[in-house]
Design a protein around this nucleic acid. Structure first.
Lengths: 343, 343
DNA sequence: ACGTGCTAATGAAACGATTCAAAAGCACGA
DNA sequence: TCGTGCTTTTGAATCGTTTCATTAGCACGT
């Protein structure tokens, strides 16, 4: 009953040709006369032949597959990045397979191993911790690697990332432009480089502006609940000490702050407090007051990462490139200028 | 400079043993004396040898990889399902590679092809449209397939899904138990089998209960904004005609309804209207009023899917099984009983 | 010295597709 | 008839690993 899989040999026998001819039908159809081609194709269909990729790869020495290791597929940033990478790869005849490290270094290592054993064309890695040595080893064995959402300070490989300092600057500059002067930055104790960068950008914007002050408020975590606590604390202050602009290190925090400010304390957004977040998650557009935010060029990042990788696959001689994108301001109701807006 | 990759032959030469011995070190270490083992291991490390999976697979005839094709990695349901599947596969020495069809049939077909060419051990598919013929073809070629989040009416393969009728019943039953009688179901025109099933369950619960009435309100889409419109329409009714319980076909709708009911019309949840959603997305727990919901046993589903697949891989003789899980009620503030709660 | 019973190591064959030098087939002109 | 220049087809060699029948090596008892 359970017969062994159909090979190119079986197809050749049935069509009455040599194996080389079948291979040519599959890979160089122009070399084969149309009558033979049709006979072979008929045999392929009749037998349900499916090419054995292992054998093909073994001979070819490399595959048409790109490995992508992400921190968390549940995070919308990574899922749309993956989508974009897949599209771009498909246009170039490659396929992306995804490995989710779940921020776990062991798991990350496992996927890197598996992909290397599979002889993928190259890897895109958004690393958990320090993948320096790892990447170094891959490169000595000739495996192209591009880092995603992280630069490589030692320039061992190309990378695609976002300038979070610019993003922080952009957000606070936007608040200042809307006439706000007493700015609060909400973030966690800056273990994450990302948060630290955003704060640095915020500082820079405030320092450029006479009369503006920046206060840093620390949240327990980067979640809605933590944001609600922070918002609660802020909104309880006496009227005269209220900030008029709040920049949160991500959208979840901002949504929490919004809930507290609006619901618990009855203040108005943006009239009393203008509010801006970071990441532009889907939810932000449909918050009670649509939330302004700072968006990473996710799609562009995914495409660029694949392009850099392909570049390196084609010509390994090419030098490493660190591509850093600027984020984009997304202006919504939570910071809309209110003076003269009706006019 | 760019030397060809290190093969088992190179390792054998350096260690001064035969290739078969190196292979034994890798696959059957017990068969090799410890002194030889160490010498070979040393050569492996020194040369940076990485096993060529293509060659291994070619010989073995099958891989240790499971292909998972999902509708949308951005959807938390699928990302946690994938996570669970990966864990379960890892425990059994396999690796899951993920393909995101993005609800696109072509893309889905491409991933299925790629996985079949890669001779994966088996596939888990959450299908876009009608994959019947597709699955049929795979099966005749001996490829194990398990459907996810969908049953196979023709029982051509095993499947893992959720009983949405039971989920709908559960949600409305919960509202009834909390003393609500005028129930509204919010959903889209039921193209999705899932939504239709949830409504059917809701109907059933209401019919079992004397004096309870069910009204169906149609939303434009399954989004927060569409929910807000619906909530707006409901809350504008004269007090006497207000429902006292609302069941939304997903959490996004429910959050929209909540925003409209609370913010625009100043009604209270759950005092005036008890509200329950479906899916239990992360956001629900941190809504202004924490949202009750119906949760699918995502992790269990992922594990079970892998288990069914492995079962079929081991013994192809095993009959197909349709596993249907019951969803779980998650009770939060939006439906909390208010009478006597303080006591 | 020789057989017995081990364990350890060997190396050729096999997996299935691709490649490529060589052969075959064919048309045409000399 | 033969050579020339073309297109089409052939099939052996190759990729790197695993398997397995065989051989080698060694200790022990007779």
């Amino acid at each position: 009953m359970e017969s062994r899989p159909v090979s190119i040999k079986d197809v050749a026998d049935r069509a009455g040709v040599a194996v080389g001819t079948v291979s040519n039908v599959l890979n160089h159809p122009a070399r084969v006369s149309s009558v033979t081609r049709e006979r072979v194709q008929g045999a392929i269909d009749a037998l349900g032949f499916v090419r054995n990729d292992a054998a093909r790869q073994l001979r070819a020495g490399q595959s048409r597959t790109i490995g992508l290791v992400v921190l968390d597929v549940g995070n919308p940033f990574f899922s749309s990045l993956a989508r974009a990478a897949e599209d771009c790869a498909a246009e170039n005849g490659s396929t992306v397979v995804l490995g989710d490290s779940g921020q776990d270094a062991d798991r990350e290592a496992r996927y890197i191993d598996v992909f290397e054993q599979q002889r993928v064309q190259g890897m895109l890695i958004s690393p958990v911790g320090d993948v320096g040595p790892r990447v170094e080893a891959l490169r000595t064995r000739g495996m192209p690697v591009v880092l995603v959402d992280r630069t490589d300070a030692q320039r061992r490989c190309s990378s695609v990332s976002v300038d979070d300092v610019a993003g922080g600057y952009m957000a606070v500059r936007h608040l200042l432009d809307a006439g706000r002067r007493r700015i609060v930055f909400v973030g966690t104790r800056a273990d994450y480089r990302q948060v630290a960068d955003r704060l640095a950008g915020a500082r820079q914007a405030v320092e450029e502006h006479d009369g503006a002050v920046l206060e840093v408020v620390e949240a327990e975590a980067m979640t809605v609940l933590a944001g609600r606590d922070v918002g609660d604390g802020i909104a309880q202050r006496p009227r005269g000490e209220l900030p008029d602009g709040v920049f949160c290190a991500n959208d979840l925090l901002a949504i929490g702050v919004m809930q507290a400010v609006l619901m618990i304390h009855g203040l108005r957004i943006p009239e009393d407090i203008a509010l801006i977040g970071y990441d532009d998650i889907d939810f932000s557009a449909s918050a009670v007051v649509p939330l302004s935010s700072v968006r990473k060029p996710t799609t562009l990042m995914g495409r660029t990462a694949v392009e850099l990788l392909l570049e390196e696959i084609e010509g390994p001689a090419s030098r490493r490139r660190q591509v850093i994108f600027d984020p984009e301001l997304v202006e919504r109701g939570s910071t809309r200028a209110v003076v003269g807006a009706v006019g």
